[in-house]
Design a protein around this nucleic acid. Structure first.
Lengths: 220, 220
DNA sequence: CCATGCAGTCAACAACTGTTCTCCGGGAGG
DNA sequence: CCTCCCGGAGAACAGTTGTTGACTGCATGG
C-alpha cells in the first residue's frame, strides 16, 4: 500500500490542503461561482498556475470540498439514527450532535448550505448525491426501528428525507446563531426549536399507521 | 396621487424592469455574488452607466428581486393556511398551490432558494426577514385553527417555521423536477412525497398535546 | 414657451480575470 | 550516480470588470 507518503507527494498534499483551506475561508463571504482561481492561489500563497496541478477549475475544487464536508459524515449519521434510548433522549442527542458539528466545522456547513442550491451545477449534483445517500441510509436504519415497523419502504424514505432536510435547516440555524452575535441564548433558542420540531415529527411518526387516512394510500 | 405615470417615469420603470428581468435570467446559471453589473446591462440592452440610475450595486438589485419574489406572496400564504376544508383537502390544495407557483415563476423560486444562504449579506437578510414574516403570519393563522387550540404561541411559531421550511424544500424539489427533465412523472413523485410529509406533520400536530411528554415543557 | 432636471450614452481608467508557454529545482527510480 | 518526472514559478496574452466625468436629448413644471 502507499501507506507512507513520499516527501514528494507529501508536499503536494500540503499545497492541496492550502488551496482547499484558502478557498473555504474565502467562501465565507461569497459563493463558489464568484470564486476566482487567482484569488484562491493568492490566499494560499502559491502561483496561479499551481492551481491546475490539483484542480481543473474552481468547480472541480468545489466538488472536492463537498466530499470533504459530507463524505465523512455517513458513519455519524447511521449511528445517530439507530442509537438506542428513549425517543426524547435520541432527539436531544441528535440536536446536540448537529450543534457540535456546526461548532467544529462552521465553514464546511456554510459551504454545503450555500452551494446546495448554488450556481455551479456539478457541485449542486455532488451535494444532492451525498444527501440522497444520507436519506437512503437513514431510511435503512429506520427499518430496524420498532416504531417504523410495518412501514413501506416508500414511507420510510419519505420520513428519512424529512429528517435529512430538517437536519440541514437546523444546522443552518445553528450557523446563523454562531456568526450573528456571540449571544449563547440564541443557540439555546435554536436547540429548543429544533428539539420540539423533531418531537412533533416523532409524534406523527408514532401515529402514522393509526387512522383510516394513515398510510393506506401507499399502494394505489 | 401619482396614479398615472408620466411618459417620463414610465420609460424609467421600463428599463428598470429590463434590468430586473435580465438579471433574473442570468441568475439561472450563477449566483448573485458573481453577477456583473456590465453583464446585466449588456443583457438588458442599455449602457453600463444606466445601471446606477436604478440601483447602487448588484446587491441592491438582489434585494429588490427578493421583495418582488416574496413580497406578493403574503396574501396567498394567509388564505392557504386558514382555508376551510378537510385536513387532506387542505394539504392537497397547498401542495398544488406550491407546484403552480413554481410553474408560474420558476426563476423567482430558484433565486430565493439560491440566495437564501447565498454570498450576499443584504440579500440573505432580506430573504430571512420575509420568511420570518411568513412564519409569523402562518403562526397567527394557526391560532384560529381548532386543531391548534390551546397551543402556546411559542409552539405555534415552532410549527409555522416547520411549515415554511417545508414549503421551501418542496418548491425546490418541484423546481428540480421542472428543469431536470421534461418527465411529468417526477412532478407526480414530488407531489406524493410532499403530501405525505405534510400528512405526517399534520398527524403530529393533532397529537401534540396528547402524551405526558407532549408540550408540557413549554414553560420551564 | 422656455429653462430646469434627469434618464441614458460615450470614452477612458486601472485593476483584475483565466489560460498558455516556458522554465526551474529537486525527489524518485533505475 | 545519473536521469527523468513533475510540482511549482514567472511572464505574458487578450478580455472583462466597476467607476468616473462630461455629454446629450427630451419630458416636465412654471
Amino acid at each position: 500500500m502507499s501507506h507512507t507518503l513520499g516527501a514528494r507527494q507529501a508536499q503536494k498534499q500540503k499545497t492541496r490542503r492550502a488551496l482547499l483551506d484558502a478557498a473555504l475561508e474565502l467562501l465565507e463571504g461569497q459563493s463558489l461561482s464568484s470564486l476566482g482561481l487567482r484569488e484562491v492561489t493568492r490566499a494560499a500563497g502559491v502561483a496561479p498556475t499551481a492551481f491546475y496541478r490539483h484542480f481543473r477549475s474552481t468547480a472541480d475544487l468545489g466538488v472536492a470540498l463537498v466530499e470533504e464536508a459530507l463524505g465523512s459524515l455517513h458513519p455519524m449519521i447511521r449511528t445517530t439514527v439507530s442509537a438506542a434510548g428513549d425517543s426524547e433522549e435520541r432527539i436531544a442527542r441528535a440536536v446536540g450532535l448537529i450543534a457540535g458539528h456546526v461548532d467544529a466545522y462552521p465553514a464546511h456547513v456554510r459551504f454545503i448550505a450555500r452551494e446546495r442550491h448554488g450556481g455551479v451545477r456539478p457541485v449542486r449534483e455532488a451535494v444532492r448525491e451525498q444527501l440522497a445517500r444520507f436519506a437512503g441510509e437513514v431510511g435503512e436504519a429506520l427499518a430496524g426501528d420498532p416504531v417504523s415497523a410495518g412501514w413501506s419502504e416508500d414511507d420510510r424514505l419519505m420520513l428519512a428525507q424529512l429528517y435529512v432536510d430538517q437536519m440541514l435547516v437546523t444546522a443552518s440555524l445553528f450557523l446563523e446563531a454562531l456568526e450573528a452575535d456571540a449571544d449563547p441564548r440564541e443557540r439555546e433558542r435554536v436547540t429548543r426549536l429544533a428539539t420540539r420540531q423533531l418531537r412533533l415529527i416523532g409524534i406523527g411518526r408514532r401515529h402514522w399507521l393509526d387512522g383510516p387516512a394513515g398510510g393506506g394510500r401507499s399502494a394505489p
